[in-house]
Design a protein around this nucleic acid. Structure first.
Lengths: 158, 158
DNA sequence: CTCCTGAGTTGGATTCTCCAACCCGCTACC
DNA sequence: GGTAGCGGGTTGGAGAATCCAACTCAGGAG
């Protein structure tokens, strides 16, 4: 568990903190499956393609991080399922943003997976400023407070 | 390079494809720095806290994936910098979504890094449906087409 | 009694990551 | 002219994580 702990002088940042929880290989794919409703070990193994041992480990760290909850769904053949907690469900925007980026810049051909939003249209997400509602991404934001070092001269994140 | 290549029966999905490009450790932290304007090797090393050898490798894969562009900025002491391409800049919403999630569910205390949007308010992103503008995340979407196996009974991603 | 399923464990080989030290071309200083 | 420093990497070896296949274990089903 090489957590974000060591790293002497790295920037203190919630992106790094988030990645310390869900940044390991398979974690986000596990979350994709769980949010899709595939909450049992066997279907997570089948759909992610990860090996059983590391998926066991990932599921455990995600449960420890309270992103998933391990629930007994059958007493007698003791069987468990992994349900998303509130924190887990809150990762949906991250996954959708990643999917959109992958559709646009990585996947060849048409998007393999398409969602329909409640409004009836194909679902594509846009990130907007929570305050004013304008789309974010044109580089018109600046740093207010920065935890860490090396203040950049031009900040274009967002 | 254990790409998304092998994995016999995994779901075909742009989330997995995206993660094959930016899902390795340090990749997204490199992108954070580059988008912050810290585009030189030394400041990437300093601010991410990663070791020089793996950052060298990550930068190379990101350049190969056309997420970054390696540009000579000084001829005589031959020096390079890493600039985001369009695909790289398009990762901003992913990073902001991760940061928001980290602020909310991982980071203890106040957010270490705060951005100000052009509108004057602190920047927090919301993911909205590109078509209708409604926020996404309450689980009111369904699958239209699914690449892969194991159709879930209830789909709540988005 | 044997087979099957779900949910993991275990072992061994391979690969990745970490860290510190080193290198190379160039510039600045003394 | 020597040497110290910097930016941008490479290299080596130790330790950790990952992969894959095989195994376990408990509880049905036939």
């Amino acid at each position: 568990m090489t957590r974000a702990s060591s790293a002497s002088s790295a920037r203190e940042c919630s992106i790094a903190n988030a990645l310390a929880v869900v940044g390991e290989r398979w974690s986000l794919l596990v979350l994709r499956e769980v949010l899709l409703g595939n909450v049992r070990f066997e279907s997570i193994v089948a759909n992610t393609g990860g090996s059983r041992d590391i998926l066991t480990a990932r599921l455990r760290t995600l449960v420890d991080a309270e992103v998933l909850e391990r629930r007994l769904y059958d007493e007698h053949p003791r069987r468990y399922e992994y349900l998303p907690t509130e924190a887990g469900r809150a990762l949906q925007p991250v996954l959708l943003a990643l999917m959109d980026w992958g559709d646009r810049y990585v996947t060849q051909g048409p998007p393999p997976t398409v969602w329909e939003h409640a409004c009836g249209e194909e679902l594509h997400v846009t990130a907007v400023c929570a305050a004013c509602g304008e789309p974010v991404g044109s580089g018109e934001s600046r740093l207010l407070r920065l935890g860490g070092i090396d203040q950049p001269r031009t900040a274009s994140l967002g």
